[in-house]
Amino acid sequence: MTDPILKIENVSKRFTRWPGMAERLVGKITGGGKPVTVHALSDVTLHVSQGEVLGIVGESGCGKSTLGRVVAGIYAPSDGSVTLKGDPIVREHGNRIDKLTTQVQMIHQDPFASLNPRMKVGETLAEGPRYHRIIPSGKVREGMRELLEKVGLEGAYADRLPHQFSGGQRQRVAIARALAMKPEVLVLDEAVASLDVSIQAQVLNLFMDLRRDLGLTALFISHDLSVVRHVCDRVAIMYLGRLVELAPADELYADPKHPYTAALFASVPTVGTGKRKFEAIKGEIPSPINPPPGCAFHPRCPLAGPRCRVEAPRLTGAGPARTVACHLNDGGVDTKAETAA
């Protein structure tokens, strides 16, 4: 494997809500009014190689979008670091960071919300490159036309407004806008989730073409396991802010090691399996304000043992290129005392 271009090292992100004055006053009497902390990301380490597409999968609240935003430099990590070719991505004063954050571009879920409805599409596309002087000012218009053609639209569409486009076309514009900055890394946050299946296939095909032609490196964040399998080289499964499994896509889908990954696969309704009983994961996703002790998945896990309730599993190797955070993979689910006896 080549040297990773993007390194996410031990990144944690906490959001703290401080109580308002009224809450603090009430808190003085009742003993409440303390700050509430959400652990959105806990100790996530991921390396992404040049030209690799890494899928980030998980249910709502698992921290996948927070991770995308940390990588894009929108949030600063509470602990740990994100580096692109050795330079840290943190929004700080000074010119250097301006340059860095433009090298990671994000594509959002809703193309209706991410495009300015009053700006011509060409203007939207040109705004970033013009400000950062990525394209010489004489060539901006021409460059925008080329970009639109690259994403399968007509160059003449540069003079149109977003409402004149369908959902799929808008998502193409959003992709063009990200590419306009000539980024090193793309972060796609549920970029095809709001599209109809037939349109989703078109956009996925476009993404795969661009990837091949431009050698894109990308984080592909999605809850849709079948989409992720189709476009990603490696897949990271997240649960409650932690990485629970990381593996090459084909290995992961052939043989999920973590019980959560397996349960996730079992609960996805797919075409072609016929009518069937759903093997539902029991229970709900716990609150990230007050995560369960030990392994975060143990209250829902069919295989949990006493050790899972007290000791959080660490990511350990489970094959040449894969890691999994589960006690089944590092000595069993019984407590150490019992294993020793």
């Binding site: 369908s166 799929g168 076309q169 299946v197 037939s198 349109i199 989703q200 296939a201 078109q202 996925l204 095909n205 795969m208 079948s226 989409v227 399998r229 189709h230 476009v231 896509a249 084909d250 797919t270 075409v271 072609g272």
Partner: peptide, 18 residues
């Protein structure tokens, strides 16, 4: 056009237009 039914990485058959 459902990705699950195709080999990963291959072009998906798509319905043209919208």
């Amino acid at each position: 056009s459902i990705p699950a039914l195709h080999e990963p990485g291959k072009h998906l058959p798509q319905i043209p237009g919208s």
